[in-house]
């Protein structure tokens, strides 16, 4: 019997190996389960030989029961480990319903609340105030390097993180505590749909996809408006001093392009490069987009008067609440920026 069992195990393993993996399946978890299975089987074979089968009949029964249990557990683990997606930390995220979600990514909070899943969210970041109703969700901190105990205290079955290195440790700690996490970077327009797809794949709730598709379609509608001719060259002021502007790698830089303008700092790949005011003078933009505080500073500061657009009154204030991050309002943000820069093009 022992030799039969020993013969059967490799056959079983062959069957396992020959099974094709579904997309995103965690190979390392399968390998771990297989290794455990093999180890247990080897132990049984050795036990059978060492204990001389007939005399250790009762003992082997116990071992066999343990083996069966392990196999069952292994199957159970594999079943739950069927990954729906791989997140931006490279972690496999298992599929399964999510009834208690801690969303520590403002874009995810917007997406879920807009999609009608407000009641499933049991924690948000300090900054999640949109849409209406979001501010009633318990505030669990600023979302970066979160307090893991606080997050676990909300008893979540899914924790959504912003995929920043600052959150890597928290994700590991949450995994160790048995929590499921989904970490996605949400820096660009395309990230909204990416996040929605990941959420839909993980939770099985597809309404988020509809919300993201709708928002993205609104962006496309703005992009397809009549081109501005000539396209205004725009500097997106993010703060000073020191002066930070939107670079090519930023959502704001994308918004300028969608709205029909040209980002004057599009040659700088960083999302928010730090530059000098003199560099703005040299690039001589047609328009400067700034938040209310930034615009006040620009108009009060003598150094900014060296920029032609400032001297000629072409500093336009954007609504920081709309253009803050690439959430469900990306279409509204694109339209907003278009409305800010189009009059200038018409004047010229």
């Amino acid at each position: 019997m022992a030799s039969g069992l020993a013969r059967g195990i490799p056959a079983l393993m062959r069957t396992r190996r020959s099974t094709s993996l579904p997309q995103g399946y965690s190979r390392h978890r399968l390998s771990a389960a297989s290794a455990g299975f093999i180890g247990a089987a080897v132990f049984v074979v050795r036990a059978a030989r060492m204990a001389r089968w007939r005399q250790t009949h009762a003992e082997l029964r116990v071992v066999l029961a343990a083996l069966l249990c392990l196999a069952a557990c292994g199957r159970g683990e594999m079943g739950s480990a069927v990954a729906a997606t791989v997140d931006d930390f490279g972690d496999s995220v298992a599929a399964g319903p999510a009834a208690r979600i801690v969303s520590l990514n403002p874009v995810a909070t917007e997406l879920l609340v807009t999609a009608g899943y407000r009641d499933r969210i049991v924690g948000r970041t300090h900054w999640d105030r949109y849409p209406a109703g979001a501010d009633g969700i318990p505030d669990l901190g600023d979302g970066m390097a979160p307090n893991v105990e606080v997050v676990l205290g909300a008893k979540p079955d899914l924790v959504i993180l912003y995929a920043s290195p600052a959150n890597r440790r928290a994700a590991d700690a949450l995994h160790s505590a048995g929590a499921r996490t989904l970490a996605i970077r949400t820096d660009r327009i395309a990230d909204l749909r990416r996040l929605a797809s990941a959420l839909a794949a993980v939770t099985g709730d597809t309404a988020v996809r509809g919300v993201a598709d709708s928002a993205t379609a609104s962006v496309a509608a703005v992009r397809n408006l009549t081109p501005l001719d000539p396209a205004p060259r725009v500097v997106w002021h993010m703060g000073d001093p020191p002066l930070f502007v939107a670079g090519r790698g930023s959502y704001m830089g994308e918004l300028i392009g969608v709205a029909g303008g040209v980002n004057a700092f599009d040659d700088l790949a960083a999302p928010s490069p730090q530059v000098s005011i003199e560099e703005v003078v040299r690039r001589d933009p047609d328009l400067i987009l700034a938040g209310p505080k930034g615009a006040a500073r620009i108009t009060q500061n003598a150094a900014w008067r060296t920029v032609r657009a400032v001297r000629e009154g072409r500093v336009v204030v954007y609504d920081t609440a709309i253009v803050g991050h690439p959430g469900v309002r990306i279409g509204e943000a694109a339209r907003h920026v278009r409305n800010l820069i189009a009059p200038l093009a018409a004047r010229r």
Binding site: M144, G239, D240, P241, P242, F244, I277, A303
Partner: peptide, 19 residues
């Protein structure tokens, strides 16, 4: 994060805001 960035920049010293 933007305020942390501004505060850190201030602490590193700069003449860029000179008037």
């Amino acid at each position: 994060s933007a305020m942390v960035r501004d505060a850190l920049w201030w602490m590193m010293g700069s003449l860029s805001g000179a008037d």
